[in-house]
Amino acid sequence: MCIAFGLLLSAAQSSQAEGETQGDIVLFPGTLAPFESNAGKPSEPNKAAAQKYGWNLPGAGYHAGSGWWALSCDAAADAKAPTCRLTPTNLSVSKGTHPVYDGEPVASQLLYWSPLPDALSFDGDNTNGKARLLFLFKPLRSLVAMKIAAGPVTTYLHANLKDYPKPPTPGTLEVRIPMEAGQFADFVPRTLPAGTREVQNIPMEDVGYPFDFLELRIGSRHQRISGMWTGCSTSTLRPATDYLWWAGDLDGDGKLDFVLSRDGGGHLVLFLSSQAKAGELVGEAGSFLYSNPAQGEC
């Protein structure tokens, strides 16, 4: 049976800060697709300029408007000088329909953004050397005054790097993020011993499915980043370029911010240092969680 998660959420949403998106930053992955094929796997456009690429979402909660930002990163850059830039953009919304895996199509909204930088790739799997649109976002409520400027943004790593740095520990899927002044942050995938599902000081909600999660380490400070799903195949971890889409300083406070994909695709989370609570390094500022109702559960 299909789990039409997105459909159920969108039916109840009343504002564009709810439904697929959560938090004070509305977040969308940059994996845009032609509207007519949004229900399936996005494909690289042959004639990008002539087609509209965006998100086709069931429901009716999103509103057109300005205040959106697109973050795109060059493919040619290396890890020592990663280059990403912010582009202000606007959201357009029109009516559409969305196929459903085991039922009749439902009403939907067609979301697309313009302007966007030229020669962008919307496909996370195959950029063909182009710059890649990593994500789109719009600060709201407590973050509406967040200082964001068009142009280059401080970036330490991104998923479109050709020469992604090797893990600090050989054979692992850890990633070391070089920051300013010789500092670095590490993402360390961790797991509980097999058969150990209850650890006193590790809340089960912090344990992803089935049992692994990321640990962010900066100096002697650690923070668990929960809910790192391994994907449909639970026997392998996802590579760092799959889970860490971007790391840099988005909120301009000189500290690490990053965007993680919890499942390699439709579950994106933006962490900002400015949203950290006491004892934390980062806090969750916004997320996007979408389950395509046209697809069955894996």
Partner: peptide
Amino acid sequence: ERISEIDAQCAADPIANCPD
């Protein structure tokens, strides 16, 4: 792949520096 396994006993100690 390799992954850092949590030492549950060590992790239960809030001030312990648990090696990977």
